[in-house]
Design a protein around this nucleic acid. Structure first.
Lengths: 312, 312
DNA sequence: CATGAAATGCTCATGCGGAGCATAAGGGAG
DNA sequence: CTCCCTTATGCTCCGCATGAGCATTTCATG
């Protein structure tokens, strides 16, 4: 939802000029991988200044993305607004308004620096779809505990251990896939992720320019939260799909596996999809019915909400 | 959560200068009424430009509110960023970053134009706590249907009726208290609310400067949604309170009544509060136990979420 | 025709949330 | 002092959503 003002407002004092910048986190899921649209060979998100020619913040964002990546956009929503703590030489500040967009990946010609990257390239520890715990989890664990032990006083150490426990789901707590930002900041504080690539970086995960990696984390967090109460996943699906494909897409986003039968039950009982009458036979086993998203139903339900199940 | 950049970023092209303005929706609940902090005799929200001296967007917001109202702030979170469609003479644009704050009302000396207003003064139709349906609901109903009938074609008319039905909970749908913004925009389109006061305004509700009324609506919507999954209500409560006082506060925000026993059950089973050992006797009936919010428990549960029940 | 891989159908146990009934404990009126 | 009114508290019931599995069905393949 893009909100635009239609009335005039007097100009505030001139001392407060700033640069308003638009940054886009554009997501697609291809071949079971959640991917984000990047420029500069995977090191930056599409972005550009908010200009006089832009009809709205959202329109400006669309414009920059299309100009920089030549990729069409679908669903777009505002994410968060960040302010730059530093000042430029001119005594100005930058306010960055970020947007989250969902599309289906299409091949576009043009700048070779433009492309889609799996978002787990930047946050490898966020992918928990593998049945067995990857070695990475242990590495992070060890490093974080070591960091907690470097605390000056006992209280700080306790607090760090508590944060580790909560964000990474230790001590009987369950892994909460929405705490991406909290985990990222914890790893940052612990010095386990760096902005610039380093040979010594113990916890993999590629960096990005400025705070783009943090903005991406914010976008992932928002998306992971949103798929639970709004049927936004369908923005990432082709016109016709099987229920397993739909499930794999949700799993890719959430970074965790779901219970198949329950997933089907929830999707079907909510009337979110309807059969097309055709089946997909290339699935390897029994052919799967092809479904189509029912936009009309969602319009009805509008904001009433419809969830997707996330098995623990 | 306030996010601040700590790294430098080069200045984008100079053509994109803008005015970054901060606007605050500060909420308190006093005597069972949800109230918002205003300046200019109830016609505007506290606001001011984002300046070089501000450490962050949130800090800037706090600064402006305290400077304009002399009222201390507690919990603050970012709400939404709006862009002004119009341009100023200087070819600049305004980007308004709004914040939502929660506090307890304290009496402050100073500007007589500063004060707390019941938010239902601006959105009277949002208060559904009365057991009997107020005449206002009928008025709105009639007016909206009349508006739907002015549609040029049948499709538009059907669409309008559908929107009315969804947002106002007709045709077997239930009233969804979170659809404040949708209802406001519908009333706006129907010409039932105006920005400037008019004698003919059929649907009560006071206007505000610029788009402040819309921003307030956004804040209310956010708050109504948030109390369902985060224990933010406690930011509005005194140190010690009875469960009924807590319930009345939630009801004031949600604009609807709750089932008493279920409310207590939910609050208690979540361990959100603990007894102080004292009782409040001025309640009119049997003395009620006084409780205190357990911040520690919430810190533990952190983002796991804790809800408050909203009876249908 | 036997097997493997998915797709589908169903059953069960649990927990939460919506509604109500019933009892307890003060204050005030008669 | 007793009855009545009001609010506080305790508990019970029921329906539904959700987490887990078991069992069958339906193709492709060797």
């Amino acid at each position: 939802m893009d909100q635009v003002r239609t009335r005039h407002r007097p100009a505030p004092v001139a001392s407060a000029e700033a640069i308003a910048e638009l940054i886009a986190v554009i997501v697609a899921v291809t071949a079971g991988e959640p991917r984000v649209l990047t420029i500069d060979v995977g090191t930056a998100l599409p972005s550009g200044p908010f200009e006089l020619t832009h009809r709205s913040l959202q329109a400006g964002t669309r414009s920059w993305v299309e100009q920089q990546t030549h990729h069409p956009l679908g669903y777009v929503e505002q994410l968060y607004t960040f302010a730059d703590r530093d000042r430029t030489a001119a005594g100005q500040r930058t306010v960055s308004i970020s947007y989250l967009g969902l599309t289906r990946e299409v091949r576009v010609a043009g700048d070779p620096g433009v492309g889609w990257q799996s978002w787990y390239r930047y946050f490898p520890w966020e992918d928990r779809r593998a049945t067995s715990t990857p070695a990475l989890a242990d590495t992070i664990d060890t490093s974080l505990r070591a960091w907690a032990d470097t605390a000056d006083d006992a209280a700080t150490r306790r607090d760090r251990l508590r944060r580790i426990s909560i964000t990474f789901g230790h001590d009987g707590r369950t892994w909460n896939e929405e705490l991406i930002l909290q985990r990222y900041e914890l790893l940052w504080e612990a010095g386990l992720v760096a902005e610039a690539p380093q040979a010594t970086d113990p916890v993999e995960g590629d960096p990005m320019t400025h705070d783009h990696r943090r903005i991406l984390a914010t976008g992932i967090a928002r998306l992971r939260a949103k798929i639970k109460y709004r049927p936004v996943v369908f923005e990432l699906m082709p016109p016709r799909f099987t229920l397993l494909q739909l499930q794999r897409t949700v799993e890719a986003l959430a970074g965790r596996l779901l219970h198949k039968q329950n997933f089907r039950r929830l999707v079907e009982q909510q009337d979110l999809v309807e059969e097309t009458g055709d089946v997909a036979t290339e699935t390897g086993g029994r052919p799967a019915k092809l479904f189509r998203f029912r936009r009309d139903v969602v319009a009805e339900r509008a904001v009433t909400g419809s969830k997707l199940p996330l098995a623990r």
